[in-house]
Design a protein around this nucleic acid. Structure first.
Ligand SMILES: [Mn+2]
Ligand SMILES: [Mn+2]
Ligand SMILES: [Mn+2]
Ligand SMILES: [Mn+2]
Lengths: 219, 219
DNA sequence: ATAATAATTTAGATTAGTCTAAAAATTATT
DNA sequence: AATAATTTTTAGACTAATCTAAATTATTAT
């Protein structure tokens, strides 16, 4: 149907629109895909010919409904596979992303529905990211970056932006997990770093870089 | 490491050597891969450069130890995934082959070891084919084609050659399953078709074509 | 409004894998 | 042993995805 490469571009565009805003630039895609802008332009022409994206030279890109459906299906598969690896095999949440990057391209409707059933229809993946249903619908309220909150706010950790092993292991070491209650005790002006408590425990410091990669909902 | 295409060629060569004999021809590979002889020649040069096969122009092909190791690892993954689909998800034995053709190329040692553990280290797949261990060793005695046996022989069904949905569903309808006791009541000279009984039941006819796709061990 | 800078696209190559048609080598038949 | 048939390889071309370098368009600063 679509090549792995096409699927990866569509997923990247979806995620960029999700966080960055309405239209996404050639350079942003190139950065996300670790490729060159010229390669991106070639692919944009191809995806546009296939009616998967809206693309006008120099004007940036959006997904068509068709393209969004493909992207959401890849994301669904990625997150269900991550959940399978953690729940059924002995994977830790920091070990699953790279394998899921491969598994998300396996093409079998029956397979993914059976995995969904096997896992008892989970709503979120091991990183707290919502899993789209078979129709591509997301049924979970949107979380926000911890870095956006202010002094004395109390919130619940619901997910991460960065899925890298290094970052996830840092969270493990710091005692920050999905569902943890995080209270902001202080925000340091100079570097926007935070003093927080986790589950009402002793306070710790985290950098703004870290706070920008933690997703929470207000309590 | 190796591309999907290279892996598929190595697997095809392994299987051809396994059944056909010691050396395998360009045309045989082309047929098995549903491609053209010219494409095969191109790939043989490449695999030879990588020291995965022994290849001399016009002289046919064998696998090097390195190439055989790669082939056996792909076969291991294919068969473990088939077992997973049948044992843990609701797949029938005639539904698993095409999905396993994709899953066999997923590259993660941890994943395949965990799947093996999850299945409790099975020795054979849903079609009775032996599963190589992590070192590439096969620990199951070799089966033979039902078409090779003679009148009054009694044997046990252990596997199939053809993995197609059509053939497996035919076996289901005929009541022939892994472990069935098959007795050869009569061999018709004219077309080498067989009259057999299954588990001492009523006798049925099967063509030589069918008998050549059923693997058995003598009882 | 013009010039400088940054973003994006085009031009031209490269690599993996495939194909058809033609040439060369091997095998079989007289 | 020579010829015919078959198998295999080579030659040249195509597509998908990528790259570098150059050209073009858009944005920002003067
Ligand atoms: Mn992930
Ligand atoms: Mn995830
Ligand atoms: Mn199979
Ligand atoms: Mn099998």
């Amino acid at each position: 149907m679509h090549s792995f490469t096409e699927e990866n571009y569509l997923k990247a565009i979806y995620k960029l629109i999700e966080q960055e805003g309405d239209v996404v630039s050639t350079n942003a895609i190139a950065e996300k895909m670790s490729t060159k802008a010229a390669s991106v332009t070639d692919m944009l022409k191809k995806l546009s010919d296939k009616k998967l994206i809206n693309y006008q030279k120099y004007q940036g890109v959006t997904l068509t409904p068709k393209g969004e459906k493909v992207a959401l299906n890849i994301i669904r598969k990625h997150r269900l596979w991550e959940m399978f690896l953690v729940e059924k095999l002995d994977f830790k949440w920091d070990e699953v992303h790279d394998v899921a990057e491969q598994l998300e391209h396996i093409n079998s409707d029956k397979l993914i529905e059976e995995i969904d059933k096997f896992l008892n229809y989970p709503k979120v993946d091991p990183h707290g990211d919502p899993i789209p249903d078979a129709k591509g619908k997301l049924n979970i309220p949107k979380s926000h970056l911890l870095s956006k909150f202010k002094k004395n706010d109390v919130c619940i950790m619901t997910g991460v932006v960065d899925h890298s092993t290094a970052f996830l292991q840092y969270l493990d070491r710091s005692g920050i997990a999905l569902g943890s209650e995080i209270k902001i005790k202080e925000i340091i002006e100079f570097d926007r770093s935070l003093q927080i408590t986790i589950n009402k425990g002793a306070s710790i410091f985290i950098s703004n870089d870290v706070a920008k990669n933690i997703l929470v909902i207000i309590k």
